[in-house]
Simulated scan of single mutants.
Amino acid sequence: MKSMLSNEVGGPETLVLTNLPAPEPKKNQVRIKVHAAGVNFPDTLIIRDLYQMKPLRPFAPGGEIAGEVEALGEGVTHLSVGDRVLGMTGFGGFSTHVVAEAAQVVKIPDDMPYDEAACFVLTYGTSHHALKDRAQIKEGETLLILGAAGGVGVAAIELGKAAGARVIAAVSSEEKAQFCKEVGADDTLIYSRDMSDRAAQKEFSNQIKALSGSKGVDVIYDAVGGDYAEPAVRSLAWKGRYLVVGFPAGIPSIPLNLTLLKGCQIVGVFWGAHTMREPQNHAENMGDLFRLYGEGKIKPRISASYPLEKAGEALQLLQDRKVLGKVVVTMG
């Protein structure tokens, strides 16, 4: 098998294509012949030892994959050799073969392409859990999405619309704004790439209020963090919900008096822990997502595809925040 390994702490340029023996599945595991692997922001962190999970080196990044079951470990009964599946691996996905816990592997519809399957579960799983379970979003509410042109942001646009919400997509460029409109956003706003001074923050908050009206927004889906968080919270409606999803712009500090003044909630979204702690709810959510996919209401927007040997370039594109929708690594 071939694998793009992280042998040292560093950026995408440190990954090395390496030949390795194919792994054997242990009890309750399966070996999957990988056809495609999704590229996600945690992949850029894990190779720098900045993610909460720190695997022993050498390891390959890549937390979600799609492919065919090739071998079964002892005790696996819900899968068979040859099944078309997607799987959450945490890491190891940038490889032609990977061993995964059988409980984290799900059969995919026959008409679902491998590249779409590899870009499905993390983004849509995160956004569905955020909007359905954590925000309990309702039809007619207004949803503001920060970082709306990225993978989880695009998923949130589609799922917000499927829930009957009015969606405002906040992005950093006109190109991204146009992309979000094509996905289905009702309105867009372009924020400054530098939100460090109070004037820029006030302008950002005013932009949101201009689009949402005097009431404010009901739900904020924040996949950006940093200095964008506080002005967004200031635009919340009474009893609004602010969803903490990610921090590519840094971990924000939010004055807690704002929660008192607005009667609002700051709600954490840790989808990975949710899948482990609440497996039944996760299974129900996956059923929701496959149904929505079958109805054509959600569909991964893949803007770029890279072969395995260029997986570092895929990570760099994501790290530079130049991705529209999703990027995938294919095994050929």
Rank of each mutant, 00 (worst) to 15 (best):
A156W: 07
K310M: 05
T123G: 10
G325W: 04
G246R: 03
M331T: 15
G312V: 01
A273H: 12
L56C: 11
A60H: 02
E203C: 06
S212E: 06
G147I: 00
G10M: 13
G325S: 02
G147Y: 06
F179Q: 03
D111S: 14
K297G: 03
P25H: 14
D197C: 05
I266Y: 00
A223Q: 06
G10A: 14
M276L: 14
R277F: 02
P252A: 05
M112N: 07
D133C: 13
V233D: 00
V167D: 03
G82Y: 05
Q319W: 14
I47H: 13
G87T: 10
L289C: 09
A130W: 03
Y124G: 02
D115W: 13
E174Y: 12
L122G: 02
V244W: 00
I108A: 03
F270I: 10
G150W: 03
A60S: 15
G216A: 08
K239N: 13
D111A: 13
E278F: 12
R321Q: 15
N19K: 15
I47Q: 13
K161W: 09
K27I: 12
K33L: 11
G225H: 10
G153C: 07
I298E: 03
I157H: 00
S303V: 07
A155G: 09
K138V: 06
L292H: 00
A283T: 11
K262S: 07
E284H: 14
C264E: 06
G312I: 07
N206T: 04
D227F: 14
V183Q: 13
L243A: 04
V152I: 13
I137Y: 02
F94E: 06
K176D: 01
D288Q: 09
V244M: 06
L292K: 01
K209C: 00
L122D: 09
T188V: 15
V233T: 01
S95D: 06
S253N: 15
W238D: 07
V69Q: 09
V245D: 02
Y191H: 08
D222P: 08
R321C: 15
I157V: 02
V183A: 15
K176N: 01
D197W: 00
I46P: 05
A100R: 02
V30S: 01
F179Y: 13
N281E: 14
K299G: 05
A162T: 05
R321N: 15
D187L: 11
Q52A: 11
G150L: 09
H282F: 12
G240M: 05
E278T: 10
A210F: 04
K132V: 11
K299S: 09
P109T: 04
E116N: 10
I108W: 03
V154F: 09
V171L: 09
Y228D: 00
A229T: 05
L236Q: 01
N40H: 14
P23K: 08
P279C: 08
M1T: 14
L72E: 10
E203F: 00
G87F: 02
Q52P: 14
V69W: 11
W238R: 12
Q178C: 11
D83V: 01
R193Q: 07
T142K: 06
A177F: 11
